[in-house]
Computed example of a mutant assay.
Amino acid sequence: MKRSSGARLGATVAVSALSLALITGCSDSGSDSKGSKDPGSPSSASSAPAAKALTKAELEKLLLAQGEVKGYKVGSGDDTLPKSKTEVKTDKPQCDPLAWSTAALAPGDTDANASNSVAEDKASTATAQPENVEDAFDINMTFVGLSSYEGDGAEKAMKAVSDGVTACSGGYGLAAGGENSKVTKVAPSKGSGLGDESVAFSEDVDMDGEGSATFHTEVVRKGNTIATFYTVNFAALGSGKAAEIPAAVIEAQVAKLK
């Protein structure tokens, strides 16, 4: 199976990312919407008083840690995630928040951002080694980003993501990690409904003329902190089946937010 640059959607997600998780073990590690929340737009509005943004150091302490989600390994993501928004560019400004969300970067205007990766730990449930290369890549890896905002910055960031889902429904061009990809379709999807508001969406990415692959992203706000979740499974890219964001990961991460 050819692994297109489309697999790097929104993050510099490469095959080496999963190889690193499997070989070195440095990477450790959605449910239904609540009520009548619209999964493709902010699920609720908050009138909570403005709070100061958390620092990067404070956000790092809120990221999921090893042992907090059973069956998953948590890693730093340092070798796979872009360091700044300058490394992730789109050809439509209104699509930037979507691309940043998939790259575990802040979807809004803030410098307070932290991220890591959470991957399935199949070794914890089975002792057998992968039978072939494809089996070795059959792991869901979720990239998690946390960002914090002053005043109503978090609400504005959520609106930008929601607006982007609509404005970018016809797709957009993406440059990340030195490679170009084409998102051919963006559509709202059913998310977890957690936090004060949430937006979930899917993106179809052109696989260099060999069909397309679908990826899911969810953005959740709790207070003035936003969590982004993006999951990829390289073994499933040619199957036409999209990797779902693990509900356990979203629930555990949102529960840690203040």
Rank of each mutant, 00 (worst) to 15 (best):
T80M: 12
A128R: 12
A99H: 05
V74E: 09
S101H: 08
T80N: 08
D121R: 10
D78W: 00
K52L: 01
Y72V: 04
S115T: 13
K92R: 14
D111P: 03
A106C: 13
P93G: 04
S115L: 00
A103Q: 06
G67Q: 14
P107R: 03
G77K: 07
L54M: 13
A65E: 14
K122V: 07
N113V: 14
A103H: 06
E87N: 07
P93H: 07
A123V: 06
P107W: 02
T127R: 08
A57I: 02
S84T: 15
S84Q: 12
T86D: 13
E60L: 02
P82G: 06
L54D: 02
D109M: 00
A119C: 13
L63D: 04
A114D: 10
E87C: 02
K85E: 11
A128Q: 09
L63N: 05
S117A: 15
D121G: 10
A123E: 12
G71N: 07
C95K: 01
N116P: 09
D109F: 00
E60F: 06
A99K: 05
G77V: 08
N113F: 00
A106Y: 06
A104I: 07
V88T: 05
P49W: 01
K92C: 01
K85A: 14
P107V: 10
A65P: 04
T102L: 01
D111T: 15
L62T: 08
S84I: 09
E87P: 02
E120C: 02
G71V: 01
T80F: 08
K70G: 04
Q66E: 15
A57E: 15
K56V: 15
